[in-house]
Nucleic acid binder design. Structure first.
Length: 491
RNA sequence: GGUCGGUUGGCCGAGUGGCUAGGCAGCGGUCUGCAAAACCGUGUACGGCGGUUCGAAUCCGCCAUCGACCUCCA
């Protein structure tokens, strides 16, 4: 088994990954709150942990990957008087909250599939685990770290901090938290501004409500992840992932809740992806500067110069290391698009390469470099650079400037298939036929191109150029190769 | 204000105490009837000022600058 090193936010160090159970990995990642379409920011954690999931599978682990859907309990901010995000959206769109949840869950899954993100092993929803959350809250109350007030239950951070370290994950000191939150605290029912809700009493008009020992209400946002992760992965599991923006308070609360429920920590490796920025600022719903994934795919957002294929988005994200911020721009995206094409072009040459009795290229070193990059905290950036080195080798063999043995070629093909398709999850962009999926349409274009070929044979350049230029004017891309002309629709 | 993290060539983006990251663009070339596409070649950059060192962009200090987080029923 490969020696995988991962950066653990908890220790702020790169650590050798050792799972609790040999050959098995349990991984939990915070999924979306489904009250709107997924945007570019959502793609980053999804792709980051998809890469981790894929690599763990590739090196032989059996992985149980749990990614939740938050459909209740995530409150909007102060300005909206703490409405539930889903409930608020439901009001705006005049739909049942569960219709909102369904619409955006479907949309999210569609986008993830377009990005070639593998579905997780289990995708639990918060509203489907109310009983588990109530049980968890009871345990926390039993351990003395929560209190009930007017039908709501709050986590008692002060009481907890007397026995455990509150803030170990996010690196916050509790004294600092006090000075920073005190003035926000009015005549709240909370004992302290640091306390967070485990269960909220519901107002009569609130639709999403469930009975509980403390009255009718709904769970707090942080509770679902503790309840669902430990339900499916056990009281202690290997990996918990999510965006860096969730580090505090969400994940810190999870650490405390887990400790309060079980008396020990529940997560061994905390892994966080960095944010995608737009003009240097975090892209997010709360800032209103986000671009939806669908808008990227069809090019409709005013900030976009053109439509971008899902694989371009995926490649763009994978070209940066997951712990670095990544800045969006049309220029960067188009560079990614070109680079990705270059990689795919080289890969397409592999099956047709001629073999020789000797290799002048070092496939073994290339292979080692790939694994070294992945093992070093999933350095997809280095991996991709290494694959570009491989592309140059492939092109050199294709041009007759280098040679490869049959055995090495098999290894090289395997390596590219493993790294590009399986681990990075990249696949060739659908070509020509995708323009409506109409076979007849494709045949008509082929017909025109064969007429052009005939004209070329007769050196009738006027006709052949006219066919080419008019097709280009209609939005086609025509590429002449040794085997004939290729075409596709420009996007 | 507090905590943490950035600042790399025209753009994106890795990495490192001394050895070419990579991609895109640009430039030059190969191929081609022309073009496009493709392929090949090409750039010695690391915010500023000090310090440590034989040697720093990489370590330390200060400064500048940018960003993330600092929670809900307020």
């Amino acid at each position: 088994m490969e020696k995988l090193i991962l950066y653990n936010t908890l220790t702020r160090k790169k650590e050798l990954f050792v799972p609790i159970h040999k050959d098995h990995v349990g991984m939990y990642v915070c999924g979306p709150t489904v009250y709107g379409h997924a945007h570019l920011g959502h793609a980053r954690p999804a792709i980051t942990f998809d890469l981790l999931f894929r690599y763990l599978l590739h090196i032989g682990y059996k992985v149980r990957y749990v990614r939740n859907i938050t459909d209740v309990g995530h409150l909007v901010n102060d300005e909206d008087e703490g409405e539930d995000k889903v409930a608020k959206k439901a009001k705006v769109e005049e739909l049942e909250p569960m219709e909102i949840v369904q619409i955006y869950t479907n949309s999210y899954r569609k986008n993830m599939s377009q990005l070639n993100v593998l579905p997780p092993s289990i995708e639990p929803v918060a509203s489907g685990h109310i009983i588990e959350q109530i049980e968890a809250i009871k345990k926390i109350i039993g351990s003395g770290f929560a209190y009930e007030k007017n039908g709501s239950v709050y986590f008692d951070v002060e009481a907890y901090a007397l026995k455990h370290a509150y803030g170990i994950l996010s690196g916050r000191k509790i004294e600092d938290l006090y000075t920073n939150t005190r003035d926000l605290d009015g005549q709240s029912e909370k004992k302290s501004g640091l306390d967070f809700a485990l269960w909220k009493s519901a107002q009569p008009e609130h639709i999403m409500r469930w009975p509980s020992p403390w009255g009718s209400g709904f769970p707090g946002w942080h509770t679902e992840c503790t309840a669902m992760s430990t339900k499916y992965l056990g009281e202690t599991f290997d990996i918990h992932g999510g965006g860096l923006d969730l580090l505090f308070p969400h994940h810190e609360a999870e650490v405390a809740q887990g400790m309060a429920c079980f008396g020990h920590s529940t997560v061994n490796y905390w892994i966080h992806n960095n944010m995608i920025t737009i003009n240097g600022q975090k892209m997010g719903k709360s800032l209103g500067n986000f671009i939806q994934l669908d808008e990227f795919f069809n090019g409709t957002h005013p900030l976009l110069e053109k439509a971008y294929h899902p694989m371009t988005i995926r490649f763009f994200i994978l070209q940066a290391h997951y712990r670095s911020p990544l800045d969006f721009s049309n220029e960067a995206l188009q560079a990614a698009e070109k680079g990705f094409e270059r990689l795919m072009n080289a890969m397409a040459l592999l099956p047709g390469l001629k073999t020789a009795t000797e290799s002048t290229i070092d496939v073994e070193k290339l292979r080692n470099d790939c694994y070294e990059a992945l093992n070093d905290d999933l350095n997809s950036s280095i991996l991709i650079a290494t694959l570009f080195d491989g592309s140059r080798m492939i092109n050199a063999v294709n041009d007759g400037k280098a040679t490869v043995t049959a055995l090495d070629l098999t290894k090289l093909q395997q390596l590219f298939s493993d790294m590009v398709n399986d681990v990075l999850g990249l696949k060739s962009q659908d070509s020509s036929m995708n323009a409506g999926g109409n076979e007849l349409f494709g045949q008509m274009v082929e017909l025109l191109l064969s007429l052009r070929q005939e004209a070329k044979m007769k050196k009738d350049w006027a006709t052949s150029d006219q066919i080419r230029d008019r097709l280009i004017a209609l939005g086609f891309e025509i590429k002449d190769t040794k085997e004939g002309a290729d075409w596709k629709l420009k996007n």
